[in-house]
Every structure is written in structure tokens, then in C-alpha cells.
Design a protein around this nucleic acid. Structure first.
Lengths: 220, 220
DNA sequence: AGACCTTTTTGAACATGTTCAAAATTGAAT
DNA sequence: ATTCAATTTTGAACATGTTCAAAAAGGTCT
């Protein structure tokens, strides 16, 4: 078994798995989610249907990989655009817009992504996953001038991550043409967030943010 | 056609539809989501499979009805418990706890509920749907003493509704035994929210809440 | 009653995700 | 080289959501 943790670490079947994955992502990109059948993936790779299931326990599992792939692409696309000197609003806007840009061709996958992103069962070391998701938001903060108030600087990435989750959820079920509503939401979220960050210098606001963050951590 | 708006309003097929729905909900409650097959629903009702599809365009459509049913049950269960004189925290806690109580047997439906609750395509008049979802939260506010600050009294129901959506989403993907994590979250959310409401008297806090609310309305 | 249209019902098919026992292959140990 | 166990691959089946053309039932008008 491939998925089990105790059997074999890996053989040269890693290649087969990768091949399968590549054609799957290719098909997903060209034919969409429902347009891509497990049979098509297997056939296109030159394998039998059952064999595909030897490497991936379900179609959703492949979608999960696509999702992780997109997360990485998002990170790679947004990072270089976060030039230091931008204010937080600008950088936040850039990061969020890039997410939409990367995800756009896969809007049909929205609900499946939600399933895969929200369902527990984190594969692999939790820290790696965390770092992959948080890193970009840390960079958004770090590249912004003026730097956010000390009071919130450390927690801000987590807050931004939370905000982007909300937007992502909204996008996933946004049926407006071209995800126009999601784009509008982002346009409004960025300045509001920036303002909130400024206000975080005030003890009341800071205490509220503390409450919210500890709630989020309850749910981590 | 039944679903189309222009053909016939209704015939005495309403009865068949209701019969179908009743056995469906019954089966859902006893056999769960994946354990209930469209064939079973049809057979149990004494109809053919194809006929079930004459009345419901998909299995999800039936789940949608179950969801609306549960919303009503929640409302009916929570409303009488909201005795005036409770403070907001208590009433909020009651309403949220009841939601979990009602939904608990259908935890397996979580993702399907999300699909149905978040996907657009609101059937029927939008206001009715709105009222059904907002009413309870209006009552939570109205039954609480002291009454929340005027500054927020009108908007609070919408805020509470938003909070419960968040919790609901969390619950839907909460795989902890007995949804313990969701319960803990609720236990913490109630006091935090109450505190936030008190603080809403301060202009800074109020302005932040305004921002958040207008964001939500962007996304309505 | 007969003709005609609409609504309802059926039965059979289809598509696709998923499972599984058995065959083929591989790789090491003797 | 032979044997043996683990890994990989196959092919065929299954389950279930969904579709659809055609039959049956109802209702209305003449």
C-alpha cells in the first residue's frame, strides 16, 4: 500500500504516481472537474482504471493534490509582487487578487476544494502544511511599510489567513459572472483590514482581536 | 413540469411529492446520507425510481428540503427557550446550542448542507428565506436584557446570523467525537460576542462593526 | 363516448466512482 | 536459476445518481 505509513516508504512507483498526477492535472485544467473521469485519467496515462485507484484512493484525493498545487502556484505568483514599501492594503490586495487569478480557471472545483481544504485529515506533518499556508501572509506583513503596529504584528498573518479563508469560501460558491462579487469583496476587504490594523493600536480593538484570535485557535 | 414557474402551479401531486419527501426524511434520519439511496426512497414510497426524479431533480434537492426542515425545527426548539431577562450571552448560547442539538443526528450531512446552504440559486421569494434565517436572531436580541446598545441593536441580528454561519461551517467539517470542538467553540463565542456588543458603544468599535457589516452586505 | 392534450409513471438504460480477487511483475534471498 | 513474498496491474464487477423515450392515467372539450 502506498498510503499506509508502515509498509514501504517508496519504490520507483513514485514515477507512475507522478505521471498519473500530471495527466490528471492536465485533464482537470482542460476538461474541468466533472469533465474529467477517472477512466480518462487512467487511460490517458496508459494504465487501467483499477490501477489509478492503487495510487489515489479517490477522485477527491487527486483534487486535493491539485489544490495543494494551486496553493504553491499562488505563493509563487504573489510573492515577487510583494515589493517592500507598499502599504499593507496594497500588498494584501495583491495577494488576494493573485489567489483569484490562479484559482479562476478552476472555479468549478470550488465546492470540491472546500471539501478538501476544510475537512480534517491533514496528510503529512502539520507544520509543513501550516507553513505553506501561512508563509505568504507572513511575507505580506513583512513587506509592508509602515510595519503594522507591534501590538498585532505577530498575529496579523494568522488574521490575514483567516480573512483569505473567508474570501475563498465565498468565491467557491460565488456564481456571479467572472466571480465579480468576489472581486468586489476583495476590493473592499483590503482597505477595511488595513484600517483595522491601524486601529489595533487601541487597547479595546486589540483586546477584541485577541478574543477573535483565541477563538480561531480554539478551532485550530 | 413541477419545478418550472410557468406551467402548472400545483395539482394533487403535491400529495405524492409530500409522501416522497416524508419517507426521504425518515430514511435520512435512520440510514444517514450515504445509506439512503434514491432507489430506496422511491421503493419505500411505492414509486419507481424515475418517478422520484420527476418530483426532485436530484438527491441534493431533497437534502435541501431536509435542511430547511431542520432550520425550522431549530427555530421552533430555540424560540421558547429565549426567556426575556436572560442576558445576551445566555440567549446566544441557547440558540447556538440548540442548533447543534437539532443538527447533531445529521452530522454526516454537513458537507451536503454546506453545499445547499451556501450555493446561490435561492428558491422561492428571497425575503421569506431571509426572514426564516434571521427571525430567530432577531428574537435572541429582542429577548435579551439589558437590551444591546442602540448603536448596534438593529444590526446585531445580522451579525449573530453571520457568527452562526461560521460556527455551522466549522461544525460541518468538525470530526472531533461528539462535535466536541464545535461545542467548545460555541462556549467561547458566546461571551466574546457579548463583550463585543458592550464595546460597540465605543465609536471605534462601532466603526469597525460598520465596516464588517458593509462587507457582509457586499457579499449578500 | 371519442379525440386530444397535459401530467404522471414506468422501465430500461447510462455514466461514473469505487471495490476486489486474481494475474503479472519485480526484487531479493537461497 | 529457482523460489517466494511483496508490489503493481488488470479486468470485471458493483452501486448508485441521473436521464429519457414511451406508456399509462387524468382531464377537458365536442
Amino acid at each position: 500500500m502506498e498510503g499506509s505509513a508502515v509498509t514501504t516508504p517508496t519504490a520507483k512507483s513514485t514515477q507512475t504516481r507522478q505521471l498519473l498526477l500530471d495527466t490528471a492535472l492536465e485533464l482537470f485544467a482542460t476538461k474541468g472537474f466533472s469533465g474529467t473521469t477517472m477512466r480518462a485519467i487512467a487511460t490517458e496515462t496508459g494504465l487501467s482504471l483499477g490501477n489509478a485507484y492503487y495510487y489515489f484512493e479517490s477522485k477527491d484525493a487527486i483534487v486535493h493534490e491539485l489544490f495543494r498545487n494551486l496553493l504553491q502556484r499562488h505563493r509563487a505568483a504573489a510573492w515577487p509582487l510583494l515589493v517592500p514599501g507598499n502599504n499593507l492594503e496594497t500588498n494584501l490586495r495583491i495577494a488576494l487578487d493573485q489567489a483569484l487569478e490562479i484559482m479562476a480557471p478552476f472555479h468549478e472545483f470550488g465546492p470540491a476544494f472546500i471539501r478538501t481544504a476544510f475537512a480534517g485529515a491533514h496528510t503529512g506533518p502539520r507544520d509543513v502544511h501550516r507553513a505553506l499556508e501561512f508563509g505568504l501572509w507572513r511575507q505580506v506583513v513583512a513587506a509592508s511599510r509602515p510595519l503594522p503596529p507591534l501590538a498585532i504584528r505577530n498575529d496579523l498573518p494568522e488574521l490575514l489567513w483567516l480573512i483569505q479563508r473567508g474570501i475563498f469560501l465565498f468565491w467557491a460558491y460565488d456564481s456571479s459572472p467572472g466571480a465579480a462579487r468576489s472581486r468586489r469583496l476583495i476590493k473592499n476587504v483590503a482597505p477595511v483590514t488595513a484600517r483595522l490594523v491601524v486601529l489595533s493600536r487601541m487597547p479595546v480593538v486589540r483586546s477584541i482581536l485577541d478574543d477573535v484570535l483565541s477563538l480561531v485557535r480554539t478551532a485550530s
